[in-house]
Design a protein around this nucleic acid. Structure first.
Length: 476
RNA sequence: GCCCUGAUGGUGUAGUGGCCUAUCAUGCAGCCCUGUCGAGGCUGCGACCCGGGUUCAAAUCCCGGUCGGGGCGCCA
């Protein structure tokens, strides 16, 4: 358990490596036991202060920060000078003795802070020098634009609140996996190079597969269904999806990580249940274990004058607002919309005013859903239009998920394709999977980065994606 | 694809035709001080996106380009 609230990783069980006997986190945690012991540590030089006979080197690794104290009299003078003249963010290895740090001057009446530890350096080595000045200051209190940060993501990532966001991302995936595995889902991977459009409705990136034209996959949809038809029963996949749309918004990327599930013998309600339980598990686990990471993000947000974020564990079940109800809410709220229209962002604002958190929007018109979505002939909307078993999950105005029960009747599937102007022959690889007995099944796909945006308060999906790919960016 | 908006040192900014040999912060370099700790003090370094045009005069106005930002559409 992280005790300092620094957002650094818990390294209590990490073993020593060629470059260090201890992590900095281990020294901070066990300083009293290590007093007087000689250790080797390595890290980035966050600050190098002092010019003359003494030098204070603040070293940071992924697990903590500690001050290394250098005295010219106590060590080789060349090494001392080399370190004293090193630039910020250079990587440095030092050997020294763990000592208690002298307490800082404090105002009278203030309580003494808990003891801190430092390293009295005996020798050291510059591992790699950093060029100066840095394109993005790691600890500087100046605002830096997103584009410059993304161009220098390797440095941006050294900033504590950015680092915390990606630690949170890892936690979200960990807790999500944990929950699905508990519910009997197994992890699978589908191909990302495909011969034909897997869903239609979006543009794909074309590519050459040796001498055959092919595409990058827009979704694992059809493949996870085939896996379920084949008897894997409950599957999930966390993997990339590619869409060649020239969108330019805070919530779209051309490559994104999709968190998908598919389960046999389930309908749309069943998989909505899986989803809300999973999100509940993720949120409550973060609240329980990872508040230190949220604190780091909030510390930065406060310094920039932004409001802080809190991890509010959502109540179960999430509200279900059927498509028909949603249309009514938008109309009552003064929005112009008719049954059969898509619910657009400005409509979602009206709904979000009433349901600001997670909410499902089930039972969309069949005409608006892809061919593989199931419908029940007796379920019609108010104006008589056919309803589907497709749903969305929104958080406020933003769509997190779309999912639904799938069509398992092959003749209906082929009719749906024809209704949407597609040729069933082009989907034989898929429809053939339904000819030999198909379990009713359902599933969903969730945008991982969108979930992260909710959790971290990031206003742009690019914040929570390491190396985002958008219309104008393919590097780094 | 549509609408709106912007580009000033490494970074973030001030600047609305002459007050600009361009502001401030941060950074970087040097010096002083120093068991410092958001260290401090002093000195210095470093910029008007590119190409045309208007004007006696352009960071500032106009046109084109490039690259950003916001909104919409589409979706996860």
């Amino acid at each position: 358990m992280e005790s300092l609230g620094t957002g650094m990783r818990d390294s209590s069980h990490w073993k020593s490596t060629a470059y260090r006997t201890h992590t900095i986190g281990q020294i901070i945690e066990n300083g009293s036991e290590l007093l007087g012991k000689e250790v080797d540590i390595a890290g980035y030089a966050e600050t190098v202060r002092g010019r003359g006979a003494i030098c204070f080197l603040m070293l940071r690794d992924g697990t903590g920060k500690i001050q290394a104290f250098l005295k010219k009299d106590n060590m080789n003078e060349d090494v001392f000078n080399l370190i004293q003249n090193s630039t910020r963010e250079s990587t440095i290895q030092v050997k020294g003795v763990v000592a208690q740090k002298r307490p800082p001057k404090i105002a009278e009446g203030e309580p003494l802070p808990p003891p801190e530890y430092e390293i009295n350096v005996e020798s050291g080595k510059i591992l790699a020098n950093a060029a100066a000045p840095l394109p993005v200051g790691v600890t500087d209190d100046v605002h830096v634009g997103l584009d410059v940060r993304l161009d220098n993501r390797h440095l941006d990532l050294r900033r504590s609140h950015i680092n915390a966001m990606f630690q949170l991302r890892s936690k979200v995936l960990e807790y999500g996996r944990e929950h699905l595995i508990k519910e009997g889902f197994m992890e699978m991977n589908s191909p990302k190079i495909i011969a034909s459009a897997s869903e239609g409705g979006t543009n794909l990136f074309p590519m050459m597969y040796f001498d055959t034209p092919a595409f990058l996959s827009q979704s694992p949809q059809l493949y996870k269904q085939l896996a379920v038809l084949g008897g894997l029963e409950r599957v999930f996949e966390i993997g990339p999806a590619f869409r060649a749309e020239k969108h330019d918004t805070y919530r779209h990327l051309n490559e994104f990580i999709s968190f998908d599930i598919e389960g046999a013998w389930m309908d749309d309600e069943d998989v909505m249940g899986v989803q809300e339980r999973m999100i509940h598990h993720i949120w409550s686990s973060i609240a329980e274990n990872d508040q230190n990471l949220i604190d780091v993000i909030n510390e930065y947000r406060s310094s920039q004058g932004n409001e802080t974020v809190t991890v509010e564990v959502p109540n179960l079940p999430f509200p279900r607002i059927s498509y028909c109800e949603a249309i009514e809410i938008v109309k009552l709220g003064g929005g112009e919309i008719e049954w059969g229209d898509d619910i657009e962002s400005h409509h979602c604002d009206i709904i979000a005013a009433k349901y600001p958190g997670f909410h499902f929007i089930p039972r969309w018109p069949m005409a608006m859903k892809p061919f593989y979505i199931h419908h029940r002939e007796d379920e019609k909307g108010k104006t008589g239009g056919q309803l589907s078993r497709g749903f969305d999950l929104n958080y406020g105005r933003d769509e997190m998920t779309s999912g639904g029960q799938r069509e398992h009747r092959v003749e209906v599937l082929e009719q749906n394709l024809r209704n949407m102007g597609l040729n069933p022959d082009d989907f034989a690889f898929y429809t053939d999977g339904f000819r030999y007995g198909a379990p009713p099944h359902a599933g969903w796909g969730l945008g991982v980065a969108r979930l992260l945006m909710v959790l971290t308060g990031a206003g742009n999906v690019r914040e929570v994606v390491l190396f985002p790919r958008d219309r104008n960016r393919v590097t780094p």
